[in-house]
Design a protein around this nucleic acid. Sequence first.
DNA 1: GGATGTAATGAGAAGCTTTTGCATTTGTAA
DNA 2: TTACAAATGCAAAAGCTTCTCATTACATCC
Lengths: 141, 141
Amino acid sequence: MVSTTQELKEAGLKATVPRMKILEILDQRRDDHMTAEDVYKVLLENNEDIGLATVYRVLTQFEQAGLVHRHHFEGGQSIFELAQGEHHDHMLCTVCGKVEEFVDEEIEKRQLAIAKKAGYRITDHSLYIYGVCPNCQKKGK
Amino acid sequence: MVSTTQELKEAGLKATVPRMKILEILDQRRDDHMTAEDVYKVLLENNEDIGLATVYRVLTQFEQAGLVHRHHFEGGQSIFELAQGEHHDHMLCTVCGKVEEFVDEEIEKRQLAIAKKAGYRITDHSLYIYGVCPNCQKKGK
DNA sequence: GGATGTAATGAGAAGCTTTTGCATTTGTAA
DNA sequence: TTACAAATGCAAAAGCTTCTCATTACATCC
């Protein structure tokens, strides 16, 4: 078990209370994909005295440090997710908002090939599949 | 050559001046990927008396009518692109902002397979590759 | 263990993009 | 041409996110 303090130091960040709390929250909800507002709400519930501005600042720092990934799903807000394990892509239910993760080696390979062919040095990529999950299909009909 | 009036009627929209002007602009700049603000600026340059709110309204209607696609690249704003020809994905240069389009049958197939396997009824998808284009790589070094 | 300098934080204001309300205008169908 | 519904312009408002600045907390050095 790695302490949050240690994790932050390794990322080159001072171990402050807000940063530790936010890291904990992201850690406890690894399956969720949270907006800054979501994180802020949890802090409020826990009676932490941490401002929304700090949440945004910290999440941005985490992103720059590689601790967190930021996504731009349809709808506008940024969504944050703890960077863990390997890269993966996302499939979202447009009805209930559920998010599933997947990896497909073939797609990864093709993307690299496409970038290479065009002479691009690839820095990042994002693939979102939008649809209706099995559960919502049942309810809808 | 199809008139813009006709195009709008076919899409089930009244042929109003703002809608025709905006459609023209998108048509003239098929290679660009414009924000609402971009479109508005062109209207201003052309001395059209069309408000920004109308640009947003019209673009949203065009999207719903299937005339236009809306993208959410990194950075926040929505980007609009005339719906033409087949579906394609995007590769963006993070330095100069250039946007290239590509299609890869294999990736399309894999996406369908992934959605099907998870029981999703797929409604849409987006794939963005971010990188540095050949031109900017030269300049950078 | 305590002082010191720097970096981080909280609160509110500000910035951007996008949407909305409403009075007025415009397009269309009779 | 008339008349009605739909569309528009403007300004205000509503999100989301960032910035400013006075205050506080962390890490380091003694």
